[in-house]
Nucleic acid binder design. Structure first.
Lengths: 341, 341
DNA sequence: ACGGACGACTAAAACGATCTAGTACGGTGA
DNA sequence: TCACCGTACTAGATCGTTTTAGTCGTCCGT
């Protein structure tokens, strides 16, 4: 029952015949000890498998060895999108290599998210946070700045001057890839079934579609709440029109699959009479029949890079310059074709 | 830039005119202060929004205020199953209410998982852990016992004498629900396409199917690695036989959807010629065409209860008696019917 | 009236690291 | 020879909480 005694800096100091302070200097690569002594200390620490106590470190206000991730989505519907799991798994894999923990919390509102950051900061519980779904005039940025708390935003465009560092997927570019492909196939009536409008990427995608007017494409955006139910409803309405769209693009794969089902129920052939595509890929998108044309992103890789970026940011005194995330790639599958083919 | 000063127990003590020790007693509901003083202290602490420093607590070996969750699955394929995300979201929602953090780590092997528990224990980083996918003769149980580290296992049967507390879904019962339903429809050749054999639930489900022999059912289990690729391959083989099975049950929904596609490609009508069902539900299972008959489990609720159980276990000196998880329910959809209907 | 028990509280050590202020010592320049 | 400097260290405070070992009254039974 007796818990294994932990080896502390004091133990190492005793063994090396120096003071604990010296050991701390040596272990943290700080000046104040000779190279020779440093080597000796490092070797002893290694031999006795010394590991830092994150609690003690956090207490003195040094590194906590943990980064935080507050996901602001309805908890019950989180599992719907593989995006989060992939992102978290990716981040975790970068972090684990450096023995950094990942603390996860699901928050209902952006206010709660900010409150969480406050708590984390005041208790020195995390060294930095990954922020999702940036908005225009995002209140979190201000909060993070004044706390202050290191952060990396996963976004869809470059960050503004004072905002936290950002790793971004060029959403405008990605949207062009997908919409241009459809326009190139000959589609002239394209509808984008989007998620809530407060997200930047929603707005960007919508704008790209509207921009296709110059090529004779009539673009239209229908806003939903990301739920398959609203996607189905939207599609039913769209397919009941006199002049149906010939291509419909959804924000994620679950909505697309919901749409596919509606089309099948209404006897509209996909892709012969209607092309469907999604801005998000997943395994299921490849398995359903017909399989779905998607923009494929390396979400796992994005998580990895975001975590690495955050770790760099934590070490840096200034806000680091933005970095690019992995580029989305168009995966053409069975659900898209020339209109009327 | 100056970080907001944190209000500590010493501040409260000064305001209440008592010693820090007394405040600690009051705050933790420990004897040693009069009810009157306790009330006063509580009120002052509340008014000044005192919050415990988890670092300081962890340092003295008291509660860290964090529980750990080590997921032992290939990181890249985690996102495939909504199960994890739902479970984590559920656990998190219980934890958040009590201001307890959730630390997440993805480990490649069971040995790494145990090493993680060691690290967590030695640094007092977590108060307890949630353990997934119990095995027969599970080496983690011994490790957890001798560390010691509080744990709750999410399993499929009652735990053995010395093992950690367990919250379990009666998998035998669940399997009966599904297989009996199929047998009741008239199916006599049923195949169970399972995940790897080292998981208890795989073995249990397999045994239940075998037990149906008494009712004239020829049951068979095909083992895969949970991947849609192996599920597809398995189905292709099965449907090429002279005497095809009339019903096939998969371990999860992604495999089922893969199977559905294979059936469609081979021109086998579902459910007319072949019934398909899954042991796991998801939104997509309800959206594909035909929609898939599933055992529906409240994974979110399971996560909630597991977290609560763990918190109780952390407080308890002894291993608590097992608790039952939410009961799986059969959701009949379009993919199952009488054979040859 | 006295010993003992109990309740309410205090003082101070402990946890394990970091970090500031200081000390000892050898070398250097004038 | 002395003032001065830099290097390599040490001592000790610090972070915020818990916990142990007291201290000081007060009440009680006899």
């Amino acid at each position: 029952m007796s818990r294994a005694k932990r080896v502390t800096i004091a133990d190492i100091a005793r063994l090396a015949g120096v003071s604990p302070g010296a050991v701390s200097f040596a272990l943290n690569g700080r000046p104040g000890v000779s190279d020779q002594t440093r080597q000796r200390i490092l070797e002893i620490a290694d031999r006795h498998q010394w590991q830092p106590s994150s609690a003690a470190r956090a207490l003195v206000g040094s590194r906590a060895g943990v980064v935080g991730f507050a996901v602001n989505r309805p908890a019950r519907t989180l599992g719907t999108e593989a995006f989060f799991t992939d992102l978290i798994a990716g981040a975790q894999s970068s972090l684990a290599a450096r023995r950094i923990g990942l603390q996860l919390v699901v928050v209902p509102t952006i206010e709660e998210e900010i409150a969480t950051y406050r708590r984390w900061r005041s208790a020195n519980q995390v060294d930095g946070v990954i922020v999702l779904d940036p908005r225009d005039e995002d209140p979190r940025f201000e909060a993070l700045r004044e706390l202050p708390l290191s952060a990396v935003v996963i976004g869809s465009q470059e960050s503004a001057d004072d905002d936290p560092a950002s790793i971004w997927l060029d959403d405008a570019d990605a949207a062009h890839t997908l919409f241009d492909y459809l326009a190139g196939l000959g589609h002239r009536r394209i509808v984008y079934v989007s998620g809530p409008g407060e997200f930047q990427h929603t707005r960007i995608r919508s704008e790209v579609l509207a921009g296709l007017a110059s090529r004779g494409v009539v673009g239209e955006t229908v806003v939903t709440d990301f739920s398959p139910a609203q996607a189905s409803a939207a599609l039913r309405t769209l397919l009941s029109r006199a002049e149906r769209p010939t291509a419909i693009v959804f924000d994620n794969d679950v909505m697309t699959i919901a749409g596919l089902r509606v089309a099948q129920e209404m006897g509209v052939a996909v892709p012969a009479e209607l092309s469907l595509a999604s801005f998000d890929d997943s395994i299921v998108a490849d398995l359903v029949h017909p399989s779905i044309t998607c923009l494929t992103r390396d979400t796992f890789g994005l998580g990895e890079r975001a975590a690495e970026f955050l770790l760099d940011q934590v070490d840096a005194p200034e806000v680091l310059p933005d970095r690019a995330g992995p580029r989305p790639v168009l995966t053409v599958r069975e659900s898209t074709a020339r209109p009327g083919a």
